[in-house]
Design a protein around this nucleic acid. Structure first.
Lengths: 239, 239
DNA sequence: CTAACATTTTTCCAACTGGTCAAAAATCTT
DNA sequence: AAGATTTTTGACCAGTTGGAAAAATGTTAG
């Protein structure tokens, strides 16, 4: 005896489509959130991983679904079963990215020691450039195109966060703990210098040569940036 | 002074069709090098300008000939009359770009005052980011893709130039005129911080808001970067 | 086993892609 | 103005693109 006889299943199409339609119109059931099967989540992750690989190199328009499908090891229609639209994949990637991307800055605490906090922030950003270069490039690609998909979030969420942290920096300046300078451009320069190692990786490698192009360069970069920023921020009074 | 325009092999290739036909008929004539008409040069410039607009936003694969033709105000076949291949347009753009891009660093003189030279270099790079943002983005796009078309030039010409200037910087360090640090990463950080204002323009605008997004920000950036780099490079001995 | 459901594959398509070609139109030479 | 040349256009093409439809194949609960 079934608790509830399956009613006329309207178009038993693909699950994804049904999910959209069902959640949108079925008002009888209490907004039952369809549980995602394990397989669905796994496949989606595989696709997102492959899409990251492709989008981060070729950008949205330059990337093709076939290419992503091939990297993901499945057929194009099969991929489209999980993400009905190319845009959908990209959107998911971008929203996940933004969370990851803002995290390091959020961690900068107003009640910590300024130099320690700034140095840690630089270190975290540099580690992200090293460990997640594709995310960095995906972000850069979106920026180059004028950030059509995330401009709203930039103007609201990101701006709010940066404004807040700029306040923190200015407070430190007021207390004479760091040099008085433009806090916004300070943040920009940290972003620029750290992400450079992911986004312009080829160039860095080409110049440092095969020898220095390996692992050591990140330690070198960290040491250099530390010196650049901290000495640049040391108040003159302190000598 | 405009950089000396070198007549490249590619240039004459654009007339491939006509040349083929003409040369096929008159095999007797000694490969007469057709001079470019004024109209040809003008149209090619218009096309390159339009291509810069499109390539710098969408990258090579993401850009379409139709789109470039539309921006250039001509039909696609007409555009293809001047540049028989999409790649040809891109190659021309890239080779022109590299010359422009390396110029500022070349100007850094070993016999000048270190601080003046470095500050001037930063200033020049910042001005390029302001005045030629599309070139900057075109370059960034190429880097993100792994620089498939210019990797050779990076590893040879660019590397040679940077090596040379790194020597200059190290000489200054030896003389105690600037802090001892990694000259390569110093150059990287100048590139990163200045180009950031062109490549991540949307983000900068989104954060600085409509008010500060205008012209003033470049002056702010210049002032900030000057402080960052010069104070960061001031030897402790000098106080 | 079998029905209901979930997943995958096969087939197909219209729009777009880079590119060709011949003929028309414009321009230049004489 | 006539003829030669250069430039522009419209029609066309083969390959690729994002995506739809449906059939075929699992998978699972009863």
């Amino acid at each position: 005896m079934a608790p509830k006889k399956v009613k006329t299943v309207e178009a038993s199409k693909t699950q994804a489509k049904r999910q959209h339609k069902a959640n949108a119109k079925v008002a009888t059931a209490p907004a039952k959130p369809r549980p995602q099967t394990r397989i669905q989540r796994e496949k989606q992750d595989i696709i997102l991983e492959a899409a990251l690989e492709v989008f981060s190199v070729h950008g949205f328009r330059g990337a093709t679904i076939d290419q992503i499908a091939e990297v993901a090891g499945m057929s194009k229609p099969n991929l489209l079963y999980y993400f009905p639209k190319k845009e959908e994949i990209h959107r998911r990637l971008m929203s996940e990215l933004l969370v990851t991307w803002l995290a390091p800055l959020e961690e900068m605490r107003a009640d910590g020691d300024p130099f320690v906090e700034i140095r840690s922030y630089i270190r975290r950003k540099l580690e992200m450039a090293r460990d997640f270069p594709r995310q960095s490039r995906l972000f850069a690609n979106e920026m180059l195109r004028g950030a059509p998909h995330i401009i709203d979030m930039l103007e609201v969420d990101l701006k709010a966060l940066v404004d807040e942290k700029a306040q923190v920096l200015m407070a430190w300046m007021d207390q004479g703990k760091i040099s008085r300078t433009d806090p916004y451009h300070l943040i920009f320069s940290i972003w620029a210098t750290t992400q450079h190692y992911a986004d312009f990786d080829v160039q860095v490698r080409a110049i440092l040569g095969k020898g220095r192009g390996g692992e050591g360069r990140f330690e070198d970069a960290a040491r250099y940036l530390e010196q650049l920023f901290l000495h640049g921020l040391t108040p003159k009074a302190k000598g």
